[in-house]
């Protein structure tokens, strides 16, 4: 008969109403500032810059290639390339960002910067309590505010960070092997004239140069 559904619905809401007083597990919300739920691993909001080691400036993975700046749909990244170079984790000299700003009031959390970064230098953070009284300066993060250690990345996204570390280690191993091979080749080359010159110790020097190139 007409109206049965309404009665069923009313009974259901009445059950919810009474049940929420009796059993705490019915309540789907938590009392936020006091109680917190740990964010799930896939959580993301705004990007941060990863650095290795203790010094954020020396360990920064970013090489200021500006791919993320170009790809960013809302154009919220601003990068200035450095004039000089410094060695990256493999030991290769690279540019570094003299300035790296992200305007998080513009950022739309799309993660495209992370997808396009070839250096695993920019990742998504989970920090969301970013409210500030200064809506311009307070929401424009410079490279110091953006820089966070690799350990932080491991803490917020453990699986992903392990994968990234494995990939970087593999890359480094490959680079090392290549350098070693180059060094050996150079050593062999050096050894050929060495047979005549008979200076075995000199082989180490060009090998070092090859690994840097």
């Amino acid at each position: 008969m007409l109206g049965e559904g309404i009665l069923k619905g009313l009974a259901e809401t009445a059950r919810n109403f009474a049940g929420s007083f009796v059993s705490a597990e019915r309540l789907t919300t938590v009392q936020y500032p006091e109680q917190r739920i740990a964010p799930i691993e896939a959580t993301r909001d705004f990007p941060f810059l990863v650095y290795d080691g203790a010094d954020w400036e020396a360990g920064m993975r970013c090489v200021a290639c500006q791919i993320c700046e170009k790809e960013c749909p809302p154009q919220c990244i601003y990068i200035e390339k450095s004039k000089d170079k410094k060695p990256d984790f493999v030991g290769k000299p690279q540019f570094y960002p003299a300035r790296f700003d992200i305007d998080i009031s513009v950022c739309m959390s799309c993660q495209i910067c992370v997808e396009v970064c070839p250096f695993e230098a920019i990742k998504m953070d989970t920090e969301f309590e970013l409210s500030t009284e200064d809506r311009f300066g307070g929401l424009l993060f410079d490279r110091k505010e953006l820089a966070k250690p690799n350990e932080h990345y491991h803490k917020i996204h453990p699986t992903e960070a392990a994968e990234v570390d494995a990939r970087l280690a593999e890359e480094k191993a490959k680079a090392d092997a290549k350098a070693k091979a180059a060094a050996e080749a150079a050593a062999a080359k050096a050894a050929a004239p060495a047979k005549t010159a008979a200076v075995g110790d000199a082989a180490a020097k060009p090998a070092e140069g090859a690994s840097r190139a």
Binding site: T13, N16, F17, G19, S20, F21, R26, L27, T28, T29, Q31
Partner: peptide
Amino acid sequence: ALGRMQNRIGPN
């Protein structure tokens, strides 16, 4: 009451 019906606590 609406909060309780939706298994929330409501204003507190």
